[in-house]
């Protein structure tokens, strides 16, 4: 849930998604779901030769399981908030596992 909420805060930001096949796709994050599937608008692909049809693509739905990295602007991330949320999540986990 934590990263789902984190991605929700990143909606409408520009991100670069690096897939497990090394392809990088830059776009505006429009939506995310519980599986961390991503929906991007305004795509531009760094490695054009792999997916030549991406030039005429308006928006993209990327399955979460195929993502290696999501690069984002450092300014859009509130690290202290993230740390707080992680600590809370860890406490909840510890309690449920007892």
């Amino acid at each position: 849930m934590l990263f789902f909420s984190f991605f929700k805060t990143l909606v409408d930001q520009e991100v670069t998604v690096e897939l497990k096949n090394d392809i990088e796709i830059k776009g505006t994050l429009k939506s995310v779901d519980q599986f961390l599937n991503l929906k991007l608008d305004n795509i531009s692909c760094a490695n054009e030769s792999k997916y030549p049809h991406l030039k005429s693509v308006k928006n993209l739905f990327i399955r979460g399981s195929t993502v290696r990295y999501v690069h984002m602007n450092a300014n859009s991330v509130d690290c202290t908030l993230l740390q707080d949320a992680s600590r809370r999540e860890a406490m909840v986990q510890a309690q449920t596992s007892k």
């Binding site: 049809h53 005429s56 928006n59 993209l60 990327i62 399955r63």
Partner: peptide, 19 residues
């Protein structure tokens, strides 16, 4: 079957065959 999808996207039918 959904698990076999890597990505999917809408095509602009005016530009789809340009490349």
């Amino acid at each position: 079957r959904g698990e076999n999808v890597v990505m999917m996207g809408e095509l602009d039918i005016d530009k789809e065959d340009d490349h």
